[in-house]
Measured scan of single mutants.
Amino acid sequence: SELMNSSKLIRMLEEDGWRLVRVTGSAHHFKHPKKPGLVTVPHPKKDLPIGTVKSIQKSAGL
């Protein structure tokens, strides 16, 4: 199965306009000026399962 580095996923979010608002432990929480909701990324993780990545991307509207 495909894995993604959390840094790469965070870069994709930031390029889309998401900004880090809070860190709780290894959970990084992002908000967007125009899009609704809060997106949480486990970080640092070298090997996020593709299912997790897809669900984060979906929440972020990517």
Rank of each mutant, 00 (worst) to 15 (best):
E15N: 10
E15C: 12
K8N: 14
R11F: 08
P42V: 05
S6P: 03
V39S: 01
K45S: 07
P33N: 08
V41D: 00
K8P: 03
L62W: 04
H43V: 02
T24D: 13
D16H: 07
P33Q: 08
G25C: 11
M12P: 00
G25N: 14
E14I: 11
L9K: 01
N5G: 13
V21H: 11
H43A: 03
I56V: 07
K46S: 15
H28A: 13
P33K: 08
L3N: 13
L48Q: 01
S6F: 04
R11D: 11
S59P: 01
K8M: 15
H29W: 15
I50M: 11
K31A: 10
S59M: 13
W18A: 00
E15D: 14
H28F: 07
G61Y: 03
G61K: 05
S1M: 11
G17P: 00
V53I: 11
S7Q: 10
D47Q: 11
H32A: 00
I10K: 02
R22V: 07
P33G: 09
S55I: 08
P49C: 06
L13V: 05
P42E: 07
T52N: 04
T40H: 10
P33Y: 09
K45H: 07
E2L: 08
H28T: 05
S1K: 07
L20I: 07
R19G: 06
T24P: 01
E14V: 10
D16Y: 06
L62M: 08
E14N: 09
I10F: 03
K46R: 07
G51T: 13
A27W: 13
L48C: 02
K54Y: 05
K35N: 03
P36V: 08
I10W: 02
K46V: 13
P42N: 05
H32D: 01
A27S: 13
K45C: 14
S7H: 15
N5W: 06
N5V: 09
L9R: 01
V53F: 04
G25I: 15
A60R: 01
K35A: 03
I10C: 04
P42M: 06
L13E: 00
V53D: 02
L13N: 00
R19C: 10
P36E: 09
N5P: 15
D16F: 06
W18D: 00
V23G: 05
K45M: 11
F30W: 02
H28C: 05
L62P: 02
S26V: 12
H43Q: 02
S1F: 05
K8A: 14
K35M: 03
P44S: 06
V41W: 01
K45F: 09
I10A: 02
L38H: 08
K46C: 11
S26W: 13
G37N: 07
P42A: 05
G17T: 01
S55W: 10
V41F: 03
K45Q: 10
A60W: 01
G37C: 06
Q57G: 05
M12S: 06
K34I: 12
G51V: 10
K58Y: 07
S7P: 04
K34V: 14
G37K: 05
E14D: 05
R22N: 08
W18C: 00
L20T: 06
P49L: 05
L9Y: 02
K58F: 07
D16M: 05
I10T: 02
K35G: 02
V21T: 09
T40K: 12
L20N: 04
P44G: 04
R11I: 09
P33H: 09
S1H: 13
K31T: 13
S26P: 07
P44W: 04
S6Q: 02
H28G: 04
S6D: 01
F30C: 01
W18N: 00
K31G: 07
L62R: 03
L38V: 13
K54Q: 11
M4D: 05
N5Y: 06
F30E: 00
L9T: 02
Q57Y: 15
